[in-house]
């Protein structure tokens, strides 16, 4: 565990807590893409199946369980408890255009052609693009609440910090995984436009509004 990895995980944890608190406190999931949240639940489910096959550390196990519970908790709040507040008119990104290519890519490019490995690879590919329905929703409405912006910033920062973790591990441990690294770069690049708006607008106290 290095500092980049730890900060990355904390940023990830912060993101999911911000999202849950936002929905819970405002009793509303307005502005949040249910489609992105479905994709994240699929990502955690496919990746953390190894919870039952291999033990790594208490930290690892606890974090995996937290991400799974938070993810399904978010789906529960969005699609059941606060269903009436879900803005489905603006959440129209076709997720099959993301899921199918990720399935095909996972079957073609993986470290080992076994069920768990392919599911892990699928989750890595899917995670890299899972935020697109949410970013599409923000671009469609032309704005995002500050709290939604903080969520997106924390979520984007997490994989960016993982990139530094992978650079560190490459030099310190002679350890790297090209599948995770390339997907992580794609994932971080997708947030760049948002990062720019966040830093130039939200941090200066303004609402995130896209230029007309």
């Amino acid at each position: 565990m290095n500092i980049f990895r730890l900060l990355g995980d904390l940023s990830h944890l912060l993101a999911v807590i911000i999202l849950l608190l936002k929905i819970w406190k405002t009793r509303s999931c307005a502005g949040i893409s249910g489609r992105s949240q479905i994709l994240f639940a699929a990502v955690y489910t496919a990746r953390y199946l190894d919870l039952v096959t291999s033990y790594i550390s208490a930290y690892n196990t606890v974090m995996k369980i937290v991400f799974l519970v938070a993810s399904y908790g978010t789906l529960y709040l969005m699609f059941l408890k606060f269903k009436a507040t879900y803005d489905h008119n603006h959440d129209t990104f076709r997720i099959e255009f993301l899921v199918l290519p990720c399935v095909i890519l996972a079957l073609l490019i993986n470290h080992d052609f076994s069920a768990l490995e392919i599911l892990w690879t699928f989750s890595i590919y899917l995670e890299s693009v899972a935020i697109l329905p949410q970013l599409f929703m923000v671009s469609k409405t032309g704005e995002a609440e500050s709290i939604t912006s903080h969520y997106l910033f924390a979520l984007g920062t997490y994989r960016g910090l993982y990139l530094f973790n992978w650079i560190y591990r490459y030099y310190a441990e002679d350890h790297y995984d090209l599948i995770a690294i390339i997907a992580g770069i794609v994932q971080t690049v997708l947030y760049c436009d948002f990062f720019y708006l966040y830093i130039t607008k939200v941090l200066k106290g303004k609402k995130l509004q896209l230029p007309a």
Partner: peptide
């Protein structure tokens, strides 16, 4: 370098 899967990560 190795190209091992980083399964200790989240």
């Amino acid at each position: 370098g190795t190209n091992k899967t980083l399964k200790d990560e989240l």
